[in-house]
Design a protein around this nucleic acid. Sequence first.
DNA 1: CACAAAACCTACTAAAAAGTAAGTAAGCCA
DNA 2: TGGCTTACTTACTTTTTAGTAGGTTTTGTG
Lengths: 123, 123
Amino acid sequence: MRDPRLHCPLTLAVKAISGKWKLYILSMLSDGTPKRYGELLKSTCENLTEKMLTSQLRELEKDGIITRKVYPEVPPRVEYMLTESGRKLCTIFEPLYEWGVDYMKTHRHDQLPWLEMGLKKLA
Amino acid sequence: MRDPRLHCPLTLAVKAISGKWKLYILSMLSDGTPKRYGELLKSTCENLTEKMLTSQLRELEKDGIITRKVYPEVPPRVEYMLTESGRKLCTIFEPLYEWGVDYMKTHRHDQLPWLEMGLKKLA
DNA sequence: CACAAAACCTACTAAAAAGTAAGTAAGCCA
DNA sequence: TGGCTTACTTACTTTTTAGTAGGTTTTGTG
């Protein structure tokens, strides 16, 4: 018998966002304006490598959550933005974010700083 | 500088549910009745191993999402159930689930079967 | 006294994911 | 002609995660 989790909408949703850098990427794109590859690469203080960024972008694209647009220029320009599915997905971040805030209060995690990404704009 | 993702409520929430068997476990517990170790182990057609079940349960417990209750009997009896945080977390599954349903419609995934877990009861 | 039952734990191996460092293409510009 | 830019590949190594097969504990029962 096949793994029923593969066919579960909830599992699908969670898998779509659980790559190591996907929340970061999605949050960067969540304000609606397209972002260039280099822009995504440089706007985190962490060492997000090219290999990782590329693989995460490819997965998100394959899953229909973002689109990739290549401009035929030299040097090349590639822009990424959310699809309709991607935009819907981002709206669900809100309750998750709220749960996290509540959770941090009761489980005494470090309170600050946390991502100053576009996430709050979703509210 | 530290990784801001570690301090992001959203990241925390997603990490809490992204273990390989966590959604399964959470869905089993989401009806509110405590479940025994062996019950969780046997109620999936997939080969969830003892090692994996134990590690996933330990993580959920460490994260304060489930509780573990040992009854001093022989043979031993151990029951797991959701904490308050865990129950709150499960309510967020609903929008994620809905997104997944919508996503499957537009991305022509196999439609059935999917997990007949307690998830729909959350509605 | 040997065996069963439940819920583990441990050591070892295999597979998957991530990190590292280097290379590529295509045209503009000096 | 050689260097510069951007958005990538590729090959290789290390680390993390998961799978496999065995062992342990504690009483009750035949």
